[in-house]
């Protein structure tokens, strides 16, 4: 039996298919303005890689910002629970998860495999992937490279602001002063880490700490966060996929909860169509 987790984030869509024993395949694609509608194609791609058809998948759980109306998902669960489940499966010792996504960041507390508390950033891009995107654009450096570059800094500059727009202005000011890109980026990562840290602190940071989401792929940000937290943090081998992994784990659990007939009935209800957002009936939560 196969189980699928589909995590439609604000920036990246991830699909993971697993069976009872292991992860069989993953697909990671940008969500984009139009691509988000095409989550079913990304799902198809994953199925093709395994030579499977939709009927082979026992249960599909959708998560992430785009989870609300997935016509082929059997259940929707928040990315908060899914990241928690994914990380708990990979690293059972983790008690605090810091998820840095494209448009939001979250702190998640785990206790004995259960979600006990969480905190999310308010309506502001500071402390999210979007903040780093804006700055890397401004500096003309590739987003993938900013972390490494920041590590070469010798005298990190002070970016005091907690607002993306103001940080942008401060960055320009530093550039005109002749500050090196390395030092600016180190300052940017520190500012971002400080913002995320002060948010997650509200739910008490306890060992072990794991970082997930796109932000975890940025070594500069991880180091800056480690400095703030005061001890080493765990970064999963593929931090983008923990949400989809958690969703697939929940999918396999849900399968066991219901009878074969109910399962088939659910599968027949799936519509293999593009994902819409908020204007349709939600997938049953």
């Amino acid at each position: 039996m196969f189980y699928a987790g589909l995590d439609i984030g604000s920036t990246i869509t991830k699909v993971l298919i697993k069976n009872e024993r292991k992860v069989c395949t993953t697909v990671i694609k940008p969500t984009g303005a139009e691509h988000r509608r095409l989550a079913n194609e990304i799902m198809d791609e994953a199925l093709r890689k395994l030579n499977l058809t939709t009927a082979n998948i026992s249960y599909i759980v959708a998560t992430g910002y785009g989870r609300i109306n997935v016509p082929f998902a059997d259940k929707q669960v928040t990315e908060i629970t899914c990241h928690m489940r994914g990380i708990n499966w990979l690293f059972p010792s983790v008690k605090t998860i810091i998820d840095i996504g494209g448009q939001d960041s979250k702190g998640i507390k785990v206790d004995n495999g259960k979600l006990v508390n969480f905190v999310m950033n308010d309506k502001c891009a500071a402390g999210t992937g979007r903040f780093l995107e804006v700055i890397s654009d401004l500096l003309g450096v590739k987003l993938d490279d900013i972390g490494e570059i920041s590590l070469q800094s010798t005298r990190p500059t002070n970016i005091s602001s907690i607002c993306t727009v103001f940080a942008e202005q401060e960055t320009l000011l530093q550039l005109s002063k002749g500050t090196s890109i390395e030092d600016i980026l180190a300052g940017i990562h520190r500012a971002s880490a400080s913002r995320i840290h002060s948010m997650v602190k509200k739910i008490k940071i306890e060992k072990d700490v794991a970082i997930t989401g796109g932000g975890a792929k940025n070594i500069g940000l991880c180091k800056a966060l480690e400095e703030r937290v005061g001890f080493p943090v765990i970064v999963p081998p593929e931090p983008l996929i923990t949400g989809a992994l958690g969703a697939a784990l929940i999918a396999s659990e849900e399968t066991k909860k219901i009878s074969k007939e109910e399962l088939i009935e659910k599968q027949l209800k799936r519509r293999w169509e593009a994902v819409t957002f908020f204007d349709e009936k939600p997938t049953k939560g």
Binding site: T78, E79, I80, L115, M120, G285
Partner: peptide, 12 residues
């Protein structure tokens, strides 16, 4: 945007 907070709270 508050939906995720309420749903995650329900899940806790």
């Amino acid at each position: 945007p508050l939906r995720t907070r309420f749903q995650a709270f329900a899940e806790t």
